[in-house]
Design a protein around this nucleic acid. Sequence first.
DNA 1: GCCTTCATGTACCACATGGTACAGTCCTAC
DNA 2: GTAGGACTGTACCATGTGGTACATGAAGGC
Lengths: 185, 185
Amino acid sequence: MWYMKARQRLLDATVDYVAAHGIGDLSLRQLAAALGTSHRMLVYHFGSKEGLLVEVVRAVESRQKQALTEFEPGPLLGDQARQMWRRLADPSMWPLERLFFELYGQALQGRTHTTQLLDGVVDDMAQPMIDMLVAQGHEPDVAAAWARLGIAVVRGLLLDLLATGDREGVDAAMELFIGTFEKLA
Amino acid sequence: MWYMKARQRLLDATVDYVAAHGIGDLSLRQLAAALGTSHRMLVYHFGSKEGLLVEVVRAVESRQKQALTEFEPGPLLGDQARQMWRRLADPSMWPLERLFFELYGQALQGRTHTTQLLDGVVDDMAQPMIDMLVAQGHEPDVAAAWARLGIAVVRGLLLDLLATGDREGVDAAMELFIGTFEKLA
DNA sequence: GCCTTCATGTACCACATGGTACAGTCCTAC
DNA sequence: GTAGGACTGTACCATGTGGTACATGAAGGC
């Protein structure tokens, strides 16, 4: 279907714009101008600025989850992890990840429209990993700890990568982690 | 000295206020009211809102570095790491850490007054660790990778902790990491 | 053909913001 | 004592904001 409802089109464009320019100092007028419409339209379609931001958070959340779960299953956990990391560390993902961390920071401070992002920010990612590890014979509590640690490593190294841009150094640290996991787990 | 210059007093109080209320939607008037002064004074002492924010970032940066470097040296790296983590994960540190991550997120999006925070955000913390590891006989590149991984784990688990509040689960993940390090490194 | 509903643009409003002009206060040096 | 400077409060300004009233267009059902 070549046709797309105006609301959805606006939302997608908004996410792109916000990923590029940040969401902190966003104003409806600037956004509308960049999108080739008027701020009146944004209010019309989303009710208010708050309503729009809520939708943006939802969209980012969904894109994030999608990017982290759509890897082909296979027996080699280490190689799966490497594949996931290669995808996440790719520069094409950086804008969305910057936005994710900006939203995360806002959510930690209690911004109303962002707090929902925190609800499953760890568990939703951890559960699939735990299932995989348990399926491979690990104890549930050990599996949970490894999953939690893995998520922390991914997020921590992404923060590093986005700040320094030093792909090599960050890749080496990730390889060290995955290698360690393969030896011990 | 019981007496403190008005500027410094205002800055300290501002950092506390901002750690508690976030920096994203800060306005000089709200801040001044909470501090028992007028927004006129803030502009007078710091030149502009931007000037104040720069000072706040500097202060947060300095408090952060201080908290991460003031642990007693000793031969047992694992125990040093445990001590550092115990200090960082303590709830009394949470407000400052929330603020740190909020600033980090803003900096990734290029907010002018925050970008300086990114300059040494990894290296300044990594260097002392690398020195320690090298002093204990590790190869420099391996030491660098472990340091980088360690910082990522700390930051990633702090993000987890601040979002979920699940101290036990996060502690378990950290212990898994430190134990792994002790076995392998 | 007309009416209804969805969509869009223009013009406007009330409000909060960062910043400033000006006047006043307090303290210290002489 | 008083002159000068550091500090603080009041009142104001221009600007940008989110949101709204109103009029207009566009599309489809009857």
